[in-house]
Simulated scan of single mutants.
Amino acid sequence: MTVLIDPPQWPGPRGLMWSHLVSDASLDELHAFADRLGVPGRAFDRDHYDVPETVHAFAVSLGAQAVSSRELLQRLIAAGLRRRKLPARAVK
Rank of each mutant, 00 (worst) to 15 (best):
A88L: 14
P40D: 06
S19N: 12
A34Q: 03
D6F: 03
S19Q: 02
G63P: 10
W18N: 00
A32W: 05
S26H: 08
R82A: 02
L62N: 13
H20Q: 11
R84T: 12
A57P: 01
Q74I: 05
A43L: 04
F33H: 13
L37D: 04
P52K: 00
D47S: 02
H20K: 08
G41L: 03
L21C: 00
Q9R: 13
W10V: 02
L86Q: 15
A88Q: 09
G12T: 02
L21T: 07
Y49F: 15
G15Y: 10
L86K: 15
D45R: 03
S26M: 06
G63K: 11
D50A: 02
E29I: 02
G41H: 05
A34M: 05
L62I: 10
A78I: 08
R83S: 02
L27K: 13
A25M: 03
V39K: 01
A64E: 10
P11W: 14
H48A: 09
D47V: 10
H48P: 11
D28S: 15
A88W: 13
M17P: 04
G12N: 04
A43C: 13
R89E: 01
R70C: 03
F58Y: 14
E29T: 11
Q74H: 11
R82L: 13
G63L: 10
D50T: 01
A25Q: 09
V22C: 12
S19Y: 00
A78L: 06
A25K: 01
Y49Q: 04
E29W: 00
D47L: 09
H56R: 11
Q9T: 14
L73V: 14
R84M: 11
S68E: 02
R82P: 09
D47P: 05
K85H: 08
P7L: 04
D28Q: 11
V55S: 07
F33V: 10
T54Q: 11
S23Y: 07
P8C: 13
R75C: 05
S69R: 07
R89S: 06
A25F: 04
R14V: 08
R84C: 01
S23C: 08
P8Q: 03
L86M: 15
D6Q: 10
R84A: 14
Q9D: 00
L76I: 11
Q74A: 14
V55P: 01
S23N: 09
A59Y: 03
